[in-house]
Design a protein around this nucleic acid. Structure first.
Lengths: 126, 126
DNA sequence: CCGTATCCTTAACGATACTG
DNA sequence: CAGTATCGTTAAGGATACGG
């Protein structure tokens, strides 16, 4: 049987359930958290993640990870001990989603000079 | 000469200029606008774009396109006539950036059932 | 150590009205 | 048609303090 994967979802449709999921991934911190986990290639602790994603607050990291966990992108493992020890990893789906996000970020980092030039040209024209 | 492209940019650094650029692309409407332009494969007018990106307001579309134009992702062509006629296309850089964004969106649309299942499981566990 | 709770400030956003 | 201006509302985000 050659089943056709036919997406019923359309993110361009306003009411589609995929919209919030996209928001979580492309929100202020979503992509950074995902790619940080992707680059780690192994479990990462909360504090370590906060250090990697510079500028994020406890509150935002917690909230972002919560959304991603709910969406099935991130797996959370709690080792009940004192002090507590919590590890985050990407799920199988999360790893696949992280791919394009990592590409985007790498492309952007490599092409930042191009962007800066464009910005300068834009300012000059206005 | 085999020049090594060595990115000086690091999006994980809080003050890096790449951060705002990433914001524009992964903000609420950035990715949707980029991929809508990518799928069009040709010039798209303002009104057409607004129709394609369901739910976006005049104000947000204008602002989003302005940011993307400033970042060198989108090219804007004004045909001075009455009524006005303005066309948007991706720049060469924009087209390359749109690639990963399109991948992300397609993956998300295809895997939405997986995400919905994860959400249901999450609710059940709490 | 890993968060949550609370409060507060900012900015994102949408609706409406208006202009070239 | 393609926006901009203004206004009001909402939601996102940061700071701080505290709990398991």
């Amino acid at each position: 049987m050659t089943e056709q994967e036919q997406p019923v979802a359309d993110v361009f449709s306003a009411a589609c359930s995929s919209r919030p999921v996209l928001q979580h991934l492309t929100g202020r911190w979503g992509a950074l958290a995902m790619v940080a986990l992707d680059r780690a290639e192994g479990p990462v602790r909360f504090g370590e993640l906060r250090r990697r994603v510079e500028g994020i607050s406890d509150r935002m990291l917690s909230q972002t990870l919560g959304q991603l966990e709910r969406d099935g992108m991130v797996h959370r493992t709690v080792h009940s001990s004192i002090p507590p020890h919590v590890e985050y990893t990407l799920t199988e789906l999360g790893a696949r989603v992280a791919g394009p996000l990592a590409e985007l970020i790498e492309l952007l980092e490599a092409e930042l000079p191009t962007v800066m030039d464009a910005q300068a040209a834009y300012e000059a024209a206005s």
